[in-house]
């Protein structure tokens, strides 16, 4: 009986919450590092087509995105334009220099073509010819999954 009495005089058991901020901060730092707040200011509309035979590109640093689609101008759609990084491309022949320089920095470069589904092949072919001139031969037609995964 004496044992029980002694126990009641003990202080209340409590979790130590002192390390809680450390755990939370660690998670916080992980998400801060992995978050990409605003990738690019995309000036063209790119509604991607849907496809079935998709491959994933795991290595994000290999990707260089080329956006092709109508320029976003308020409600209406402008004419089809090409955007690489943050800038619209005025002259099509400038693409080969841009891509050539990117290829020098990253020899395993994959050009991810984000083309609006309502575009025509003419502009896509032109870009592809430029990529061939630059020697950036690995491309990827960015598209979304057709059916929900089984």
């Amino acid at each position: 009986m004496a044992r029980f009495q002694r126990r009641s005089t003990d202080t209340d058991p409590e979790f130590t919450t002192a390390s809680l901020p450390d755990i939370v901060f660690m998670l916080l730092i992980f998400f801060m590092v992995s978050t990409v707040l605003r990738e690019q200011n995309i000036k063209v509309r790119t509604r991607l087509p849907q496809a079935e035979a998709l491959t994933k590109i795991d290595q994000k640093r290999l990707i260089s995105k080329i956006h092709i689609g109508p320029i976003k101008t308020g409600e209406e759609q402008g004419e089809t334009a090409i955007q690489i990084d943050d800038a619209l491309i005025e002259k099509r022949t400038a693409i080969r220099n841009i891509m050539y320089n990117k290829l020098q920095e990253q020899p395993k470069l994959i050009a991810s073509l984000k083309v609006d589904e309502e575009s025509e092949m003419g502009i896509v072919n032109e870009v592809q010819q430029e990529l061939r001139e630059a020697g950036a031969l690995r491309i990827n037609y960015s598209s979304n999954r057709e059916n929900p995964p089984e």
Partner: peptide, 22 residues
């Protein structure tokens, strides 16, 4: 933490891979 959890998008690029002829 909650702010970054909400704003994070872990999206993987998918598409049809091709190799252009040289």
């Amino acid at each position: 933490l909650i702010f970054f959890l909400v704003t994070t998008t872990i999206n993987v690029d998918t598409g049809i891979g091709m190799t252009l002829p040289p």
